[in-house]
Design a protein around this nucleic acid. Structure first.
Lengths: 341, 341
DNA sequence: TTGAAAGCGCTAACAC
DNA sequence: GTGTTAGCGCTTTCAA
């Protein structure tokens, strides 16, 4: 029952050296400065006492915590686990630890979480929260703390970002449908105050035009959130407009599932009556009924890159405000086909 | 560019009081000891300086970090996000922060993560990692740190645990199939060195017997992991045994998906030819083809309870080694039906 | 190659 | 009600 964990001083005492010598012996970087035999003695003493360095004390002294914080809307959204794992894995390599905060897109929570993270003196921050207007942003810039944006392109902030290339991705979706012969293509957009929602909508319009199809505003509906129920509601609204269409580009897979639900209710077959394209290729989208044609985004890699950028910034390697956009890929499955009419 | 964040001493200086007074004023518990006007002055100074208490310094002094660590196999497994959110939400209420570690069921990683967590002086630990033999367990007991087990029942350790009631859950599955008229029921078990795998297998045998059906060992196959591919491999093995069956109880939903895949390959219809029951009711299991009949487990609540227990232990409220088993529920969907033969 | 001394930012007796 | 003092456990000059 070693209720109290051994301290550096105790290790030093046991090894018969001064605490500062023990410190040097224990630390790989300074180990070279100390006599080999002394190192052995210290290491042995540490082992016998089950010594675990107190990282609080170290952090207090060195002003580095080897911790980075990550804000995201909701871990439960299947989009995020792979990103988080990417971040964690890359961070773990460098002996960094991650702390997570779920904001639910709530500015108050966002502020509160950020406060505790700053209190904990995180060495850097990964912001995967998608709200476009973030009031605390200035504070962060003031704090001079490295920040990397995920799934959101920096607007007027000086930070780098990592995301999928939404413009290219929507292009894949639109051109896939066009090549199948679709002309009247609807878009169920995401919330326009989220940067992904806005970007995908704008890209949809741009790609339709570049394909020579004037996008019909009546075939564009915005979902109030990136979830199934909101997606279903938006689909209902789309039908209420009573304008014919043969395909839907959904702003994400969850919204696409909402489409599925409404389509099924109306006895409409996917893809015979209506083709549906999702976005993200979230886990199990290939197991849906029918398997969803969607845009694959390399989420894990996004996480890895974000962590690497954060680490670079912490190490004072200049990374600038680059916007890293990783290439999406079209995953053709069974929710798209040539139009029937 | 306030690169350096304000310190307590600076706040005190600005407010014209001693640091310890400022400390008392800033801390809700000790605030009462301080003159109201002084409190105002201090709070104002803190506000103007953008003061953020350094939690490292505080932790070093108070020996509490308001951090708890959680070990899990893989965040990417859809089982875990709801549990983690439950833990985080409950912890957040109490101003605690969570740090996460993915072990991939690798003992080395497990050890490494645990080491950093102890170095960080977490106030408590939630172990959602399922390996039955955990060598470091003694160390933890030695460290005298509160530990709560999730999805794993304490064998010979003195810690409380929270999990779904596997025995009851498998009972739900078996009795559902029996009530539909199935007699020859197969089981694709999970790895037997994971406590959930073992418990579900044992429960399967017990329930079959209590239903008056002698379980046929040839209809019991063990998957090498809780994932789709391993589940598919086990299903192939099951068919290789060439013993007829009309239903499968899978040890989890992912394995059930593996069954789906193999069944589809063999042109077998679910549920017409074979009924399948999953376990966990993971997200989107209701969107599978066909929607999966499965056992619902209250994952989020499991997380919440685990966090509450950890908090109780930290607060020295005695919780003993209770095994909290939350009630599962049968989610009947379209993968089960009366046997055809 | 090792020791001495100082201090990171905070809290908690204790004294006034 | 407020100030004084000491110290949590560590790293890091500086000196020997």
């Amino acid at each position: 029952m070693a209720l109290k964990t051994a301290t550096l001083r105790e290790v030093a005492e046991m090894a018969g050296v001064h605490p500062s010598t023990a410190s040097r012996a224990l630390n790989p970087e300074s180990r070279a400065l100390v006599n080999e035999k002394t190192v052995t003695k210290v290491l042995e003493a540490a082992g016998r006492l089950g010594y675990r360095p107190n990282s609080l004390a170290r952090g207090l002294k060195t002003n580095r915590t080897y911790t980075i914080g990550m804000l995201l809307p909701d871990l439960t959204n299947p989009l995020f686990p792979p990103i988080v794992r990417g971040v964690e894995d890359a961070l773990g390599q460098a002996d960094y630890t991650l702390i997570l905060g779920n904001t639910d897109n709530d500015p108050d929570k966002e502020g509160a979480i950020l406060r505790t993270m700053l209190s904990r003196r995180v060495d850097g921050l990964v912001l995967a929260t998608a709200r476009r207007a973030a009031p605390f942003v200035e504070q962060l810039a003031d704090a001079g703390i490295p920040v990397v944006l995920v799934n959101r392109v920096s607007e007027d902030v000086p930070w780098p970002s990592v995301s999928g290339d939404d413009h290219a991705g929507i292009g894949l979706a639109v051109r896939h449908l066009v090549s199948l012969g679709h002309r009247r293509i609807a878009h169920i957009g995401g919330p326009q105050d989220l940067s992904t929602g806005l970007a995908r909508y704008q890209s949809f319009v741009a790609w339709m035009q570049s394909e020579g199809l004037e996008p019909d505003p009546r075939l564009i509906v915005f979902s109030t959130s990136f979830h199934e129920v909101a997606g279903a509601a938006a689909t209902v609204e789309l039908f209420a407009r009573d304008v014919p269409f043969s395909a839907i580009v959904a702003a994400n897979d969850l919204i696409a599932i909402g489409c599925y639900d409404v389509l099924a209710e109306r006895q409409l077959n996917v893809p015979k009556d209506v083709s549906v394209v999702g976005y993200n290729d979230m886990p199990f989208s290939d197991k849906l009924c029918p398997p969803l044609t969607t845009i694959h985004i390399p989420h894990y890699t996004i996480g890895v890159r974000a962590a690497e950028l954060a680490l670079d910034m912490i190490a004072k390697r200049d990374v600038g405000a680059q916007a890293l956009r990783l290439a999406p890929a079209l995953a053709i499955r069974q929710s798209t086909a040539v139009p029937s009419a």
